[in-house]
Amino acid sequence: MNRSVVLTADPLDEASLAASRPVSATAGAVVSFLGCVRSMESGRTLAAIEYEAFPEMVHRQFQVILDQAEARWPLESVEVVHRTGRVEPGRPSVWIRVTSPHRAEALAALGWILDEMKRIVPIWKRPVWG
């Protein structure tokens, strides 16, 4: 399984991310997720979220997650790009793309990877209130 995990302080552009990472012709399913910052949190207006990461541990914990995903589903690739720094409402904070021969495993794996990321990958949000 091809895998890639990137932390970046640069804005995410989904079209550029997808275009710069060609998909194998053997993949029948290409499932991507773009997580964006909401404008409201707990009834309050957000000006932005500041993302902080522990980079070395982020990479290690994603490897743990992707090892398990690979053992569980016949995936061809998993790519993760997560923002650090300030992200304003409406702008993406994370992009994940999973490819596999068939859709069921790609859809299942993507949801599971997101859940695991939120459980063990050391990234934190700091709200900047509007």
Binding site: F54, H82, V94, K118, P122, I123, W124, K125
Partner: peptide
């Protein structure tokens, strides 16, 4: 050792 609050990626 690292000590931190619950993680919140995404």
């Amino acid at each position: 050792v690292s000590l931190f609050p619950p993680v919140q990626g995404g």
